[in-house]
Amino acid sequence: MGTEETAVLARHVAEAVRQIAVHYGLWLAEAAHQFGPQAAVSMEARAGDALLPLLARRIEKALDLPDDVPTLLAGLGREKLERLLSALSVSWLAADGVWFRAVEDERGMHDAKRVNDTCWSRLGYYEAVRAKARLGLPEAGGLPALRQALGARLIACVNPWDIVEETPASFVLRIVQCRVQSSRARQGLPPYPCMSGGSTEYAAFAAGIDPAIRTECVSCPPEQSRPECACAWRFSIPGGRSAPENTPGAF
């Protein structure tokens, strides 16, 4: 096989990965549309748990790998794995950015923000459910569970963050530096007004951990009151643990 034919085949492999990702996402979106977000996320847990080992086995066989994929990844060592996780996390955020730009170019800022805010609310709920499963967190685990789950998010690998003003009933999450806003500043652009998207995202994530948790925006463009951080969000459980009737983050 010549060099050009090999390059064509390599592009075909990359296209296969892309189509797997898109088709998988379409299944999740349509299941949510047909059956509701909670049922869809439950189904995704079964589908994902079945797909990942199947995919790994087929890659191992196709490439004649000396060991299984999880073992080979673990063999990279902590430093390389941390770099790989960082690269994947930044790429995940880049995927969000290119989709935003594509919709904005076709439909304008209003529609791009509308799609953006909905996607982040759905992702927030999904990430919460996955974090609970990965970390073994209890249902309705309150603020301690939320505090632990926040560190398991992909965005935690991208943006420096901390927790301040912690009390038994509440705490404030600060995003100390935001990759998106820093990039805009370097380009001489004003801060992106992300308060609406952040509000739906964090409310959905918190409710996915414990529906009794309330989310409040403390500071976020365009209403930024804390210049020492990119944004800040207060989570609390006021007046008991009764859950709301509707959980944010519906697909």
Rank of each mutant, 00 (worst) to 15 (best):
81 L>F: 06
124 G>Y: 04
165 E>R: 04
80 K>H: 12
100 F>V: 04
173 L>E: 00
40 A>G: 12
128 A>P: 06
155 I>R: 15
32 A>Y: 08
49 D>G: 12
63 L>H: 03
51 L>D: 14
223 E>P: 12
174 R>F: 00
163 I>W: 12
25 G>C: 09
126 Y>G: 13
50 A>P: 02
172 V>Y: 01
190 P>K: 07
238 P>L: 08
87 A>Q: 08
133 A>F: 10
204 A>G: 10
134 R>E: 15
138 P>M: 04
237 I>C: 14
124 G>R: 05
129 V>G: 03
124 G>K: 04
50 A>S: 11
30 E>T: 09
75 G>P: 02
53 P>Q: 13
14 A>G: 01
189 L>H: 05
60 E>M: 02
131 A>V: 01
90 V>T: 11
38 Q>I: 10
175 I>F: 06
168 P>Y: 02
190 P>N: 07
191 P>F: 04
168 P>W: 05
1 M>K: 01
250 A>D: 12
182 S>Y: 00
32 A>P: 13
239 G>C: 04
116 N>D: 13
150 L>K: 10
51 L>Y: 15
223 E>F: 05
169 A>Q: 12
191 P>Y: 03
163 I>N: 12
67 D>F: 11
178 C>D: 02
10 A>K: 01
123 L>R: 06
58 R>G: 07
246 N>S: 08
54 L>A: 15
205 F>I: 03
119 C>F: 08
89 S>P: 07
39 A>E: 14
249 G>P: 09
36 G>Q: 09
12 H>K: 06
